[in-house]
Nucleic acid binder design. Sequence first.
DNA 1: AATATGGCACAAA
DNA 2: CTTTGTGCCATAT
Length: 117
Amino acid sequence: MKKMALDRNLVYKLLKQVPEGKVASYKGLAKAAGHPNAARAVGGMMRRNPYAPSVPCHRVVYSDGRLGGFNGLSGIKDKVRILAKEGVRVKDGRIVDFEKLYFADFSLKLTRKARLP
DNA sequence: AATATGGCACAAA
DNA sequence: CTTTGTGCCATAT
């Protein structure tokens, strides 16, 4: 059985499923991609966001509801601004109503063949 | 090829 | 609540 690393394509696909005004966490994406402990790796891919801005990396935050980092021009500030524009309120570095805005309804359909648990 | 770093998560103190 | 330490994986140099 070939042990594949985290599927970049899959991660991007999942992330693109996140609607505006909602946010996802690195953990969520990693988990949805089939790598529950590769949250950091997800960040590693987006660090240089190869598919920007098709891939809304700014919409991904910490599992705690905080923004995390951002390699943007003005650093974290840009991320906040963009999110605010999307409708996500950020208060003191924390996302307001994070639980409500959290998107975890990722669908693996069309991204992979049916797999047996 | 190897080292360092990073946009993380989680447990423990 | 905050701080510290450990695990995990992709990217950059």
